[in-house]
Design a protein around this nucleic acid. Structure first.
Length: 594
RNA sequence: GGUCGCGUAGCUCAGUUGGAUAGAGCACCUGCCUUCUAAGCAGGCGGUCCCAGGUUCGAAUCCUGGCGCGAUCACCA
């Protein structure tokens, strides 16, 4: 069925017959552009078992394949490389098969599918989302879509960090300096309003620290004794004691933040099946720790704190419960993981969290493993590099962040400017134009971020705007729009089977396009295995580059051969479908015109 | 200091399990809009794949040792 498998078997037969040797591995690679051929057999590895020279071996196998495998039309041997030329009819047949497939490239849920929960975003509720969150969101959403396309059942989730001292800081500053401000009264997005007070707290805190230092305190003392920080700590205690007033304030301000986040998520085009809130889960895990002590996984120190010894694994000792019995981050994550498996009967989880937490997740997975959960083997930390600015790390408190909403706004504006310069959309209404500008602006942003290998860090320079030409989202969207234009202009029925004759000689560009299309299914699998949207992005770019070359070198509607015309329209249509499908996996929409 | 990650063209990035002369985009230079959308196409310029050893028929890729950048090593999250 798979052509490579067919050839592989034939190669084994050829070697067995000619040299009486059974070979195990047959190595293929795509033929380099500078040589004639579609698929190349590398003969060097076989020379260990077969005693001959590479050229002769290639020659013998080549002759055998041409004789015995219908799809192999001819061959040439360059050094130890056997380049095989496949017949056009093979490509035409493959093309016709994919043409009729519904969700070409995607697998549906089956017996060997897994149910996986993908966690991403997971923000703090004390400040707005910034570019770092944008990368996280885009990655998490896209990986979820890719895993789904690879045949898995997916739940998207986030854990919202809605409690703790940082939230109390915003709350306190609002009480102190807020003068009753609300999103309604100021016209500010809720998350922005609350974020302002987080900054305000920090300013006040710093002021008090320097005052105390001026009075003769050490920096450490000043940091601990500043009245405002003590007050925030008091507030946290009250929160934990369920003080009605504090709880009411907390609920009110969190609500502001949530509606702000919702707007950002909507604009970004990401969604979640289930939200977990830290205020619900932060106590989870304690029972598990207690059981773990009995089973000897954890041990208690004299002061009452509980630890796990991971020195055998080359790691350190790690605390899992404080001496006062309260939970730490790790306690909570253990509890939450177990809770999720209970809630959704999942086989595994993907945590989209920055690489600064590599160590944490290594430890978490190890602990869950030692606790004996078999699903612990299916936990993945989707670790990605930080997004830095030329000036260094982004810091919310110091205001050196690229705000998510502003960034999207900016991208949309750039798209608008370019679009208006080109002026191709005169028949569009203002509303349609606005929608398109957003689609293109976000396409540029998303592609820009997703095309980079997740584990690499991104240096984002706000001064140099994201490109709209070359290897970019808009270039790919543009190609899609071009294809749709052709389909609109094709005033004949191209839906049925292509009637291209067996003898048809495929144009080189047509053949390259079909080759690239046929790669799509395995690319989805590869991207799923590697949790890498970048593979999809780069694949799509290659496809689109190939199509544009075809488009500009081969006439599609201009040919007077009807069968050829129909075939080329169908080919264009499939390319469009693959672009749309692949971009869907990246969370990027495609336009009918642009 | 220990651990983990990264280092490829001026810049941003690709490079499958080790394979042929290391590829794209941006920028710069040449051509191409009376013909399917020029956000495009065709071409040019541009490389010590961080350095040094090693493994092998063959290394950007694997191993060892350096150098540089980043992260992490809290009873923070």
């Amino acid at each position: 069925m798979n052509i490579q498998k067919t050839i592989e078997q034939a190669v084994k037969n050829a070697v067995a017959k000619t040299y009486d040797v059974q070979i195990q591995q047959v190595e293929f690679q795509p033929t380099r552009k500078d040589f004639e051929g579609d698929i190349t057999l590398v003969t060097f590895p076989m020379l260990r078992q077969v005693k001959t020279n590479p050229v002769q071996l290639g020659q013998r196998i080549g002759e055998f394949l041409v004789e015995n495998v219908a799809e192999v039309k001819k061959f040439n041997v360059v050094q130890g490389f056997l380049n095989l030329v496949l017949s056009d009819s093979f490509y035409l047949n493959s093309f016709n098969e994919t043409k009729n497939k519904k969700d070409f490239g995607k697998l549906s849920f089956s017996d060997n599918s897994k149910t996986i929960m993908v966690e991403y975003s997971s923000p703090n509720t004390n400040k707005p989302l910034h570019l770092g969150h944008v990368r996280n969101n885009l990655l998490g959403y896209s990986v979820a879509e890719i895993l789904k396309a690879a045949g898995n059942k997916i739940y998207k989730t986030q854990i919202i960090n809605d409690r703790g001292i940082h939230i109390c800081k915003s709350m306190l500053a609002w009480v102190r300096f807020g003068d009753g401000e609300t999103p309604e009264s100021t016209g500010l997005k809720g998350d922005k309003l609350v974020g302002n007070y987080y900054v305000k707290f920090d300013q006040e805190y710093k002021k008090q620290i320097s005052e105390l230092i001026a009075q003769g305190k050490t920096e450490e003392e000043a940091k601990a004794e500043a009245p405002i920080i003590k007050e925030a700590q008091q507030m946290l205690l009250k929160w934990e004691a369920q003080d009605p007033e504090v709880i009411a304030l907390w609920e009110k301000m969190n609500q502001w933040v949530y509606s702000g986040f919702e707007e950002t998520y909507n604009n970004l085009g990401v969604d979640f099946d289930k939200n977990y809130y830290e205020s619900d889960t932060y106590l989870l895990g304690k029972d598990v720790i207690a059981q773990g002590i009995e089973r000897g996984v954890f041990y208690k120190k004299e002061d009452g704190s509980v630890w796990i010894d991971l020195t055998d694994e080359g790691l350190d000792e790690k605390i899992v419960l404080r001496s006062d019995g309260t939970a730490v981050y790790m306690t909570q994550d253990i509890g939450t993981a177990i809770q999720r498996v209970k809630d959704f009967d999942i086989d595994g989880m993907v945590y989209t969290v920055g690489n600064e937490q590599d160590y944490h997740f290594k430890v978490l997975f190890l602990i869950l493993n030692k606790l004996g959960f078999n699903w612990a083997n299916y936990l993945v930390h989707l670790s990605y590099g930080m997004v830095d600015l030329p000036s260094g790390k982004m810091k919310s408190r110091e205001g050196t962040v690229v705000d998510a909403d502003e960034l999207m706004e900016q991208m949309t504006l750039t798209a608008k400017t370019i679009s208006e310069e080109l002026g191709k959309l005169d028949e569009y209404s203002e509303e349609e134009k606005a929608e398109l500008h957003k689609m293109i602006g976000l396409g540029a942003l998303k592609y820009y971020i997703l095309k980079v290998d997740p584990k690499k860090r991104i240096l984002f320079n706000p001064e140099e705007s994201v490109d709209f030409q070359g290897n970019t989202g808009p270039f790919i969207q543009y190609t899609y729009a071009r294809i749709q234009s052709i389909l609109r202009k094709a005033d004949f029925d191209y839906s049925e089977e292509s009637t291209i004759p067996e003898s048809y000689q495929l144009h080189e560009k047509e053949k390259e396009l079909i080759k690239q299309i046929l790669l799509y299914p395995e690319m989805i699998q590869l991207a799923a295995e590697n949790h890498s949207p970048a593979l999809i992005a780069n694949y799509t770019y290659d496809l689109v580059r190939e199509f544009n070359s075809f488009y500009q070198n081969v006439t599609i509607l201009g040919t007077d051969n009807e069968a050829e015309k129909k075939f080329r329209v169908q080919l264009s249509k499939i390319v469009g479908e693959v672009i749309k499908s692949a971009f869907g996996l990246l969370g990027i929409q495609v336009p009918e015109r642009m």
